[in-house]
Design a protein around this nucleic acid. Structure first.
Lengths: 230, 230
DNA sequence: CGAAGCCTTGATGCGCCTCAACGTACGTGG
DNA sequence: CCACGTACGTTGAGGCGCATCAAGGCTTCG
């Protein structure tokens, strides 16, 4: 049996009674995924929602002509795939394991009951959606007003802050991340990202290798990210 | 006294008991705004939420260096300014009357009570937020993958569908909308928008004058919007 | 009637995409 | 464990889409 301590300290479940959590856990099914596995795909019936216990997940939209756009990265402790709760009957995007993952899965139709049983969960998730909406709007503003260099800097700073692990060299992003991934987060090409990374490495602000990025001078990167056009 | 029929048929209040609506209305205060008035500004304490009864409202973000980005347009019947319900204590954007408006205003702190009294309202608004999140994500994808011409076409088609009035000439957008406004919706400049509109007018797809746009060939505009590069 | 706001149109330049070629690290199967 | 194939990364050359700069016309309103 899964233990309540697994999830009791996670933001989505803040302030929820222990026995309510116990109940919730009884209905959850733990699942493992290997890197690059699909947790769900866009268009599938949205019959479950999920909690990420360990690993990282990439949420990706694909355009009609096959281009990929990364909507967000999910870190451990976050809910995802809550499409049904938001009134959709299919998932709007793909969810791919960006690293090996452990996930809890619930049947989507218990959501209304959970909400009504635990008002705190209701407001917690309400706030979560609010934050994601906020996030999305921020990105729209970025895309509309910033140049590529700033957007890429922003993206990397955000990932470093969200997932970074401290090392001797600096802050390293905790999962494999390619130039192409970054370009799909920022609406540019892998070529441009590569050039930027080379320049920044030259300047001593980052170190980077194959699918691996270390931020060595966080502050300068932030400055760059906020620097309006010349 | 305000009559229940004012709001009973609006989507946010679908399936809510008449007496609950009556209660809700008692706490609402109707307010008028003239075109270009501010309903609220970014950064102000989010102490109210609103329903638009008549008119149109533009939700605008302003960047640190003064550039404007239009997040969305609100049409009659929609809720807006629900920041507090989403866990924010200040409004994240400006709300400006795009036309003369009539608005209902509620104190934000009654939200939790309304939610608990009317589960239907809770799910209705949950879905509304879900739709807006969806919308925002769609726009991110657009900004990341489409060229200016397609984005502008998309924006105009959306506005025509959302607010259009049928006339002999075609579908006319129901409120004053300048080239600059369109450029702030799509992340381009008023110059580029002007050139596009001229070209489209030449081609017979739209007619446009000072802050006024009529879509004469909806289908061709949609085709243009969906046409991938070359 | 003047001033301010909105729109148009041309000329110019550059940021970034595109196309192309090559180098390098990974992992997989014999 | 090595060899090969594939995925990832780098760097250059060239060109185009769109921002920028500039100037002028038209409408609306005080």
């Amino acid at each position: 049996m899964l233990d309540v301590s697994l999830i009791a300290n996670l933001p989505p479940f803040a302030d929820i009674a222990k026995d309510a959590l116990q109940d919730l856990l009884k209905q959850a099914k733990p699942v493992r995924f290997n890197r690059n596995d699909y947790i769900f795909s866009a268009g599938e019936p949205a019959d479950s929602f999920f909690l990420l216990l360990d690993g990282y997940i990439r949420v990706v939209r694909v355009t009609p002509d096959g281009e990929q756009v990364i909507a967000r990265y999910i870190s451990a402790g976050e809910l995802f795939g809550v499409a049904q709760a938001l009134g959709r009957d299919t998932y709007p995007a793909n969810a791919v394991a960006a690293a090996d993952c452990v996930v809890l899965r619930w049947p989507g139709d218990i959501w209304p009951e959970v909400i009504s049983r635990s008002p705190t969960f209701a407001t917690n998730t309400y706030h979560m959606v609010g934050e994601r909406l906020q996030d999305a709007q921020d990105r729209i503003v970025e895309m509309a007003t910033e140049r590529v260099e700033q957007r890429v800097a922003h993206a990397i700073v955000k990932l470093a802050d969200q997932t970074g692990r401290k090392t001797d060299d600096g802050i390293v992003i905790d999962f494999p991340l390619s130039r192409q991934d970054i370009s799909e987060m920022t609406g540019t090409t892998l070529h441009t990202v590569s050039r930027l990374m080379s320049a920044w490495e030259q300047a001593g602000m980052v170190k980077s290798g194959r699918q691996k990025i270390t931020v060595t001078e966080h502050d300068r990167l932030v400055t760059l990210a906020n620097h309006p056009k010349e």
